[in-house]
């Protein structure tokens, strides 16, 4: 948590010292859905702040549990930084991120990684990267269950992360419909062999205010060639450029 405080401090300082060319974007959304492991409906809300300055972008967010089988109130934290650049006139964005998922009162999962994204093509978005996942016991669990330090975490390295999205309209259009295949979300990163699909709708109400509604569908075992329903959720949110 101390690392997070440090990063948040840097973020606030950056906002304070940069000038009028900066752009702050606030994002908020709700997830409502269910899956095979959720024991009924879950409802979660997320609040995010995005700060853009020239070609640089930093974003952080926090996920709150409203209804679910997770006993924690704050269930996710993340921070990501990115920068835009050109490779022979081909626009790319490089990003690095850290994510914390507090999925139980005994354990949590961290992910960090890097990726490259492009919106070169007006109707498509592609992202490719790698992530490093660690499952850990928290200190309460370590003490309660007398777990030795060398057995308190498990790592999965070099997991492939990807986003492939196609849109009906260009990225800058006032409204859009899109379809994505990905193994990542803000607070969940699946193994690369578990693609998740989502259908996206966005509508720009005003020049600085966009609303959106997504439907995410998860199927287990697709690359086992023996797939079965896992779960779904709706995501509704707003994006406000200040």
């Amino acid at each position: 948590m101390s690392k997070l405080k440090y990063l948040l401090t840097i973020f606030i300082v950056l906002i304070s010292v940069t000038g009028i060319r900066a752009q702050i974007i606030l994002k908020s959304y709700f997830d409502i859905g269910e899956n095979n492991a959720s024991e009924g409906v879950f409802v979660k809300s997320v609040y995010r702040v995005n700060y853009q300055y020239l070609k640089f972008n930093i974003e952080t967010g926090m996920q709150f549990n409203l209804i679910s089988n997770n006993p924690n109130t704050i269930t996710g934290l993340d921070i990501l930084g990115s920068t835009d650049f050109l490779v022979r006139k081909f626009p790319l964005s490089a990003k690095g991120y850290f994510m914390l998922n507090r999925f139980s009162d005994l354990m949590y999962e961290t992910n960090w990684g890097v990726g490259i994204e492009t919106r070169k093509f007006e109707h498509f978005l592609f992202e490719l990267g790698t992530n490093f996942k660690t499952y850990r016991f928290n200190s309460g669990a370590i003490n309660k269950y007398n777990i030795s330090k060398d057995k308190s975490k498990l790592r999965e390295n070099f997991n492939l992360r990807y986003v492939i999205s196609a849109y009906l309209k260009p990225h800058y259009n006032d409204w859009n419909l899109g379809l994505s295949c990905t193994n990542v979300d803000y607070y969940v990163i699946n193994q690369s062999t578990n693609p998740v699909f989502n259908f996206q709708t966005t509508f720009k109400i005003k020049s600085n205010l966009t609303v959106y509604l997504d439907l995410w569908y998860k199927q287990a075992g697709m690359l086992n060639i023996n797939a079965y329903y896992f779960g779904y959720f709706f995501r509704g949110g707003v994006i406000w450029k200040i």
């Binding site: 492991a37 959720s38 999965e156 075992g221």
Partner: peptide, 29 residues
């Protein structure tokens, strides 16, 4: 049958991570 963790680069499919979370919790408790 299904292994839970991706301990090496492989194309075999694991359960979805939300399910792994619950299982790990149960295994400990």
């Amino acid at each position: 049958h299904n292994n839970l963790f991706r301990l090496r680069p492989t194309s075999s499919t694991n359960p979805i991570v939300e399910e792994i979370h619950i299982l790990l919790d149960l295994f400990l408790k």
